[in-house]
Computed example of a mutant assay.
Amino acid sequence: MPPVIIADTSCLILLEKIGELALLPQVFGPITVTGTVAKEYGLPLPEWAQVKHPQDLKQLQVLALTLDPGEASAIALALEQPDSLLIIDEQRGRRVAQQLQLTVTGTFGVLLQAKRRGCLATIKPVLARIRQTNFRISAELETQVLRLAGEL
């Protein structure tokens, strides 16, 4: 497991909405977020989440030209943390992070890790709760996640 796990806002919001925020520390231990992500999250951060600010403000400004502020700050911080894992869901942000050779996963990757580690018995009911939110998941992605989880 990478030494630093950095989360973007969407993962925090989605897991909070479905009552599964505690999966993050169960799977990864402490999570790092930027001040911008903490502000976007809008709720008090749990004790296992620490706030760290990216130091390279020029890099942050460049990323912010094409990404939302939370994504830009999370990617900027991940660039400063060798061997970090970035949890990011939005396609554009993931693409930029991958082009910058960052290691990324998304909320569904978190769920798959949670199942592999025994923190979740099954993913299918969690996906059903996600469909009740405003988070968009295609039928293809849902099928892929269920297949990877061994639930199809």
Rank of each mutant, 00 (worst) to 15 (best):
3 P>N: 15
5 I>E: 02
5 I>C: 03
7 A>L: 11
7 A>K: 05
9 T>L: 03
10 S>Q: 09
10 S>F: 06
12 L>A: 13
13 I>A: 00
18 I>L: 06
20 E>K: 15
21 L>I: 14
22 A>V: 08
24 L>T: 12
27 V>S: 10
27 V>F: 13
29 G>A: 12
34 T>D: 03
34 T>V: 02
36 T>W: 03
37 V>Y: 00
38 A>G: 14
38 A>L: 11
40 E>R: 05
42 G>F: 07
43 L>V: 08
43 L>R: 15
44 P>I: 09
47 E>Q: 11
47 E>S: 14
48 W>F: 15
49 A>C: 14
52 K>N: 00
58 K>S: 09
59 Q>P: 00
62 V>F: 08
62 V>Q: 06
74 A>V: 01
76 A>W: 02
78 A>R: 00
80 E>G: 04
81 Q>D: 00
82 P>C: 04
84 S>N: 07
85 L>W: 03
87 I>D: 01
87 I>Y: 01
89 D>M: 13
91 Q>A: 15
93 G>H: 00
93 G>F: 01
95 R>V: 10
96 V>Q: 11
99 Q>S: 13
103 T>Y: 01
103 T>D: 00
104 V>N: 01
106 G>F: 04
107 T>I: 15
108 F>Q: 09
108 F>E: 12
110 V>C: 15
111 L>D: 13
112 L>T: 09
112 L>I: 04
113 Q>I: 02
115 K>S: 05
115 K>M: 06
117 R>K: 15
117 R>C: 12
119 C>S: 08
119 C>A: 14
119 C>F: 06
122 T>C: 05
122 T>R: 14
124 K>I: 00
125 P>H: 13
125 P>V: 13
125 P>L: 11
127 L>V: 09
127 L>F: 15
130 I>F: 11
130 I>S: 09
134 N>D: 15
135 F>E: 07
136 R>T: 07
138 S>H: 07
140 E>D: 08
142 E>M: 05
142 E>S: 06
143 T>F: 08
143 T>R: 14
149 A>Q: 05
149 A>N: 10
149 A>I: 04
151 E>Q: 08
